[in-house]
Every structure is written in C-alpha cells, then in structure tokens.
Design a protein around this nucleic acid. Structure first.
Lengths: 343, 343
DNA sequence: GAATCACCCCAAAGCGCTTTGGATGGCGCA
DNA sequence: TGCGCCATCCAAAGCGCTTTGGGGTGATTC
C-alpha cells in the first residue's frame, strides 16, 4: 500500500492525504479523520526512504562503535546504554543504526554516513582523553553528542558525563575516613577519559591528606573480571598489601572479590571494596542492601538523556552545544568497613 | 556531492557514472577507472535513500528487541551477538538497525518495518518455546532468521541454535561421573526455549541413571548474579544440600560461587559448578585454564553466522529455510571435582 | 449582485538514484 | 562501398513521498 493507492481509494489527491497524515492545517478535521482511519485499516505507513528523500531527513541516529581487533569493545555497558537511548528514539519516531568500525576508520565512516544520508546525527562512545573524533565530526558536519568527555578538546561540543573525578574522590575519602591508608585502584585503560578522571579523583583525595599515591597500588587495563582478579591477587600477596580496593566496574569488583576470597580473606572485614556501578540491568548490585559499596550512576538513564540531547540539537541546529554533568551516588553496601587494626 | 554534480564534472551522463560505479559491463575500463577516481577524490557516496528508493532494497537488517517494562532484556549476550552480526553486515555493505519494542507490540513493528521499507529482513532474538513471532513474520512477509529455536513451531523457518539439550546433558553426565548425586540446576526463565531445552538435557541425564529430578534442586528466573546467589544460598542451607550446580550463564555462576564462599565452602572441592559460557568478550572464563568448567559456545560467532544466513536468504528468496545446530564445547576448568565423600 | 475571504483540495515538480530503451560511431568484412 | 555489429554512452521514466503554487466553492460582506 502506498500513498498513490491510498489516495485513489479515498478519492483524494496525494497532497491532501499526505497533509492529513502529517497534521497540516489545510485539511478539514472530517477528511483528516477519514484519511487516518483508511490508513489504519489498510495499514499504510509511508515509505521511509521516499519520505527521507523528499524531506532530506533520515529520521535515524547512528551509534558508531569502534572495534579494535582486540576484542575489547562492545563493552557490557553498551547494551544498557542503547536500551536507554532506544526508548528516546522510539518515542520520537527515530530509528537507531549501529555501525561497527575498525579503530582508526572512524573519519571515513562519518564521511560516508553524512554523504549517504544514513543518519541525522550520532552518538560518540568511549571518548579518549585526547580524541580526534570530535574534530572529525565538526569537519564532516554531523550533529553529535559525546557520552563522556574529551579533556584535551578546546572547541565546544555537546556531552553528557558522570562526574567521575568527584565520584572517585568521594569514594577514596570514604575509605580514608574508615581508616584505610593502603588503598588500591584497579582502573580502566587510562587513555580513556573516564579512567583518567577517576584516577585524578583518587590521587586528589590521597594528596589532600598528604598521602603518596603508590604506583604499586594502581593498575589499569580492560575492565574484565580477570583484571580485577589478577591485580588484586598480586597486590594482596605483596609484603605491604592494600586494605581496600577501588574498582572501575562491577565486573572488575567481582574479580577483586574472588581474589580476596582466594587469599582466605573476607570482603568488608579484612579488605574493603568500592566499585563504580553502572546500574546494569543484568548485573544488579544486590537487592535492598548493595553487595558492593559503590559510586552509582545509571548508564541506561544516561542513554535516554544523551539521545534527547542529540534530538534537541538536531531540531535546533544553531544553538550552542549543551553539556550535562551527572553526579554519581555513593551508596553504602556490605563491602566496606573500618580498616583492620594492624596485627 | 551527488550523482548529477559528479557526472557534470566528468562530462558523462548520470547513467554512465552510475554504471561505472556499480560494475556494469557497458562501460569501458578506462572510463570506469576515471569515474572511480573522481568519486574517491570528491568523496562521493551514493545517497542510501535514493538508491533504496530506486532499487527497492533497504540494505539494512533489523534487530527487534523486546523490552518488557521489567528491565530484563538487553541481556548481556546481546552486545557480543550484534558485534558478531555487525561484522558480517559491514562486509556486505548492510546497515544494522535496532528497534526496541514493548512486549506484545512486535507484530505491529514488523508490519511497519515492512511497510516503511526500513529493512530487508530481521533477526529474531530470545525465542520462547511457543512464540507467535514466527507466524507473524511469515504473515507479514519479511525474511528472518531466529537466534535459537521455537519448539512449538510446526512450519519450517530458518534458525541457528546451540544444542542446549546435549550440552546440559553432557554437563550433567560429567557431574554424575564425578560421583555427584545431588545436582542443582539454576536455569533461565523456562518459557524461553533455550532454558526449557537445557532443563530437558539435565533431566534426561538424571533419568538415564534412574535418578529422580528433585524439584527442590531446580530454580529458574532472570539470569542475574542474584538469582545464582539466592538459589545457591537457599539450597546449600537445606538439610540435604546439592554437591554440584549447573548454572545457565557466567553471571549466574558468579552468584553461585559467591553463595558457596559465603557458606564457607570451596568451589571445586566441596561444591562443583558447571556453567554455560557464551564466551563474552568482557566476561572471559579465565585465561588458559577456565575458572568454571563450562559448556562453551561463542555468541559472537553465532551472530556472524546468523547474519550471514539471513543475507543468503535475502539473496535467494525462494530457497527452503536453512537451519544450523552448533555443539557447545565442554571445557574443563577449576570448578569441578569429585563429589565429596559424605561426612 | 459583485467582491472578498476562508476553507479545502489538487497537479506537478523535485529529492537522488537505477534502469529501460535507444542513439552514435567506429570497425571488420564481403 | 555498404552493411552489420559491437562497444560505449545517453535521455528520460520511475521509485514514493513532500511541498509549492495555485484553483474552485460556498459563505460573508458591502
């Protein structure tokens, strides 16, 4: 069923039918209703491509996901993020298109997405502290919003980020308040902007109390269970082991917990753990009382908001870029306690 | 830059340029090369919508993800699956479009995707034992491939599935061979086809040895860490606790492990655990030696193959549906050992 | 009774591409 | 010389929609 057929059935012109369906005022309420009903009955939906061609809008948003030949990406957070974003898109009649792109090929992809008119804008995932993509997108001229930030970027751009620095600073402070002095950080890859900021918050908190940041207590890597396990195992086996860990994600924290158990220690009593918790739907941090004390910020909610920011930007193209900084909650769970008195 | 402009620059007709770029034989190699170079230089890419309009093909595949208002879905497996599928799409010049749809609204979505011409086909995720979607898609007339199977479906359709029954049967057999007699199953929601099949394999293995399937040793629910933890905690606290667990996913197994530790027991010695392992990129089951003994099957690889099956089906529409059953590997890890002799 | 005005509606152009159905010219061959 | 035949290219139609630039009709105003 297409417009031509539908208008033939109704005995109206294509113009009128189109206007009726798109809510233009030049058509009487009576006919509008008649048209709407007929459309429903014959379940007519306007062809997206034809509509797009005519209007110049794709009604689609791109998510370009870099995939190193290493398996890193499509990280666990991604599912929840797009699920949040997807809600927003659905409400606004947008489609979501995903492109997996080999590392370094982003610019070419942006250019093509623009030239082919596949999307009206896109979301930038996983920004690094210094990230060429911002510049590339400005050059190509596609609207975009970054989930996260790029510290090194000077020009204004739209972003939404969690206040990672403050979150990790507060978490570190809590551990310090509990009497811990040897606090380890198991961080994500530190060329990632969020990881660099977290480290910043951690170091700041230590420095504020005139404590040195011991390199032996800092690890960073891809945020896997094994990273948590290996890092914590090694540190716990060292002559001067930490009494507390900061973990960069639930999965890492789970690895840390395993290491603690394997070392014959008890989490929350012998060793404290605080993790960042993205509030993933399939990896809840306990029920009422959290398992892990955590800096919590829902990545799904972030997805919803980032998507809305982008749609707004597309609707009003010449506004100055908007930014939004979310504070993480520091929620107390069962994984933290006072530093054990030395034995 | 569009076709018209490009052909004007080249002093050729749009026809010729189009043909040159699409590899038609009616154009000399010399001009083809000249055209290709000009296209590259002015980085011209044909507008997808216009091309789609003209050819009737969307060059896009849909992934329709049901989202209950409960937060279940966008399960952890999804990221890896689409990352696999995305590889295949990219290689073949297809886009991937995601639609989040409220439970029960699928048929309407299918109809719209078809009418709007958004996609050329789609992947069905998370099939239930009896699932109306197969019928709906047949009715709507969109090519599709199911990741999983629908036991109740009589008509032929394309699918790719892991042999869940055999996998869980073999896993149960292994535990039985190790002397375990009280074996628990922490399963996914059993209206899901894969979960029903796994239960089938588990029960079969017990029955084959004339052992009863004790309802007290079977749980099912959304596959979270908490499900594993709660189920295992309760069972371990019972007067006649299990000595082994089958878990439906790594995340569940991690919860089981936590319960075992909390009960003061040691996994692999006091209590054995076998889990299904989807080989997720961010949740590796150990390095060389797996942490958990597992039935392993890469969901990313599945994504690649499912996508290819769909593209093939779109290319040759009137073939009979193809199906593919993958056997999971049973890999030995550190979480299984002989049943403890009763004390 | 003519002029004016809403109100509804329409024909046709145009979005950027593919594809049909020729045109054109050069070459070999009898 | 004249014919047929490739090889190469082109003009124009058409994909399904929106939107511009008009009408026509009946009611209202003077």
């Amino acid at each position: 069923m297409n417009l031509k057929e539908l208008s033939a059935i109704l005995g109206l012109s294509q113009t009128t039918v189109s206007r009726a369906l798109n809510g233009y005022p030049e058509v009487s309420e009576a006919t509008r209703k008649r048209v709407a009903e007929a459309a429903e009955r014959h379940n007519y939906s306007p062809n997206t491509r034809a509509k797009g061609l005519a209007t110049g809008r794709a009604m689609a948003i791109g998510h370009v996901i870099p995939t190193s030949n290493r398996h890193e990406m499509v990280n666990p957070v991604f599912g929840d993020f797009i699920s949040g974003a997807g809600e927003t898109y659905a409400q606004n009649g947008y489609e979501m298109v995903l492109s997996l792109v080999e590392d370094g090929q982003e610019e070419r992809t942006y250019r093509e997405l623009k030239a082919k008119g596949t999307v009206d804008g896109l979301i930038v995932h996983g920004p690094k502290s210094s990230d060429p993509r911002i510049h590339q997108l400005h050059k190509v001229g596609l609207p975009f919003v970054v989930h996260g930030r790029v510290s090194a970027e000077r020009k204004p751009y739209s972003w939404l980020d969690v206040n990672n620095r403050s979150a990790f600073q507060r978490a570190t402070d809590l551990l310090l308040d509990l009497g811990h002095r040897r606090i380890a950080l198991v961080n994500g890859l530190e060329h990632m902007d969020f990881a660099a900021r977290r480290r910043g918050g951690y170091v700041d908190a230590l420095t504020a109390r005139k404590l040195p940041a011991d390199p032996d207590l800092m690890r960073s890597g891809e945020m896997t269970e094994l990273l948590g396990f290996d890092s914590a195992s090694q540190m716990l086996a060292s002559p001067n082991p930490p009494t507390a860990f900061l973990a960069s994600s639930m999965i890492v924290a789970i690895g840390v917990r395993r290491a603690i158990h394997d070392a014959g220690l008890t989490m929350g009593r012998d060793v404290s753990v605080i993790t960042h918790d993205d509030d993933l739907s399939y990896l809840r941090n306990g029920d009422e009382v959290p398992i892990f004390t955590a800096t919590r910020s829902s990545v799904r909610a972030a997805g919803r908001v980032v998507a809305q920011m982008l749609l707004d930007q597309i609707a009003t193209p010449f506004e100055t870029p908007k930014t939004q900084l979310l504070e993480a909650q520091l929620v107390l769970g069962q994984s933290t306690g006072p530093a054990p008195t030395s034995h």
